[in-house]
Write a protein that binds this DNA or RNA. Structure first.
Length: 277
DNA sequence: CTTAACGCCTGAAGGC
DNA sequence: TGCCTTCAGGCGTTAA
């Protein structure tokens, strides 16, 4: 579910409530979330650790402890955090992990579909998941010329290339559709057919879109919530995602259509996203 | 190497 | 009401 702006919103929320807190207890209600290590190892690894930083890379969250151990996690489709100062009277559904802090506050990890992943890294240990991960869209090293170089190597439609986290990390189904609309590029256009100018426009569009979406605390279609349980507000600014049948808000000459690419819905305007097809 | 399909899970929504 | 199918903001694995 969450893409870069939603993950960024959650990271900010975590910073505001769990920074400098020390874990007193970890409860694991669903073992499948944990990579490689046993429940016992997971608990002992995190016991008594103090949170020093909360960072984001692409859609990953990294919790860095004062000991320099790190917890890497990914929310996948339905992962979310709920923070409470004290134990609530009502039980939440689908809680998979609970972090208790020594000040009595509690961080719940809720994940309906249990796709989320948690893994632990010792100080200095390389985060294996980052080896092949593409640059964050806001990375200063990412410029139009290196972006086009990557795009030239792929023959898949540009929509599918943007979803590949090895190329650029952080975009999901909503923001790929919205970014391509902004850049007036057809989602079916083969990645290697983009011009340098189009790649530059696309990169600009991605950055402007994500910046705005972060400002609006992300997009809530069904159930995205920030750590303080608020819905995002960017859904009001979506132009094409789930707008099939509606008149294009830009050209007003065609209806937004929905197609399938690799079993996933793509939404675009067939008139103003003709590009060079 | 690249690419497409499947599987992981649960629940909501729509057709019959 | 119930049963069945499809769909969902993601991605690792597998097979071609």
């Amino acid at each position: 579910m969450p893409e870069l702006p939603e993950v960024e919103t959650i990271v900010k929320g975590l910073r505001s409530c769990v920074l400098n807190k020390t874990i007193s207890k970890v409860t694991v209600l669903h073992v499948k979330l944990l990579a490689k290590r046993s429940v016992i190892a997971f608990k002992s690894f995190l016991g008594n650790e103090t949170i020093a930083q909360v960072k984001r890379r692409g859609k990953y969250i990294v919790i860095v402890f004062k000991s320099n151990k790190r917890l890497l996690l990914h929310l996948r489709m339905t992962g979310k955090f709920i923070y409470k100062q004290a134990a609530p009277s009502l039980k939440f559904n689908h809680i998979r992990l609970i972090f208790n802090f020594i000040d009595g506050s509690i961080l719940y990890y809720q994940d309906l579909r249990i796709f989320g992943t948690f893994s632990l890294f010792n100080p200095l240990e390389e985060i294996s998941e980052f080896k092949a991960l593409g640059p964050d869209p806001f990375s200063k090293t990412l410029n139009p010329s290196c972006f086009i170089a990557k795009l030239k190597k792929r023959t898949v439609p540009i929509k599918n290339a943007l979803l590949d986290q090895r190329l650029i990390s952080g975009l999901g189904n909503i923001y790929t559709c919205e970014a391509l609309f902004r850049a007036k590029i057809n989602p079916l256009l083969p990645s290697n057919k983009l011009s340098l100018a189009q790649a530059a426009t696309l990169l600009k569009s991605i950055r402007a879109l994500l910046t705005l979406a972060i400002k609006y605390n992300g997009t809530t279609i069904n159930d995205f919530r920030s750590v303080d349980d608020k819905a995002g507000r960017f859904q009001k600014l979506l132009k094409v995602y789930q707008k099939q049948g509606q008149t294009c808000p830009r050209c007003k000459k065609a209806e937004i259509i929905r197609i399938k690419q690799n079993q996933r819905s793509t939404f675009y305007c067939p008139f103003c996203q003709k590009s060079n097809l």
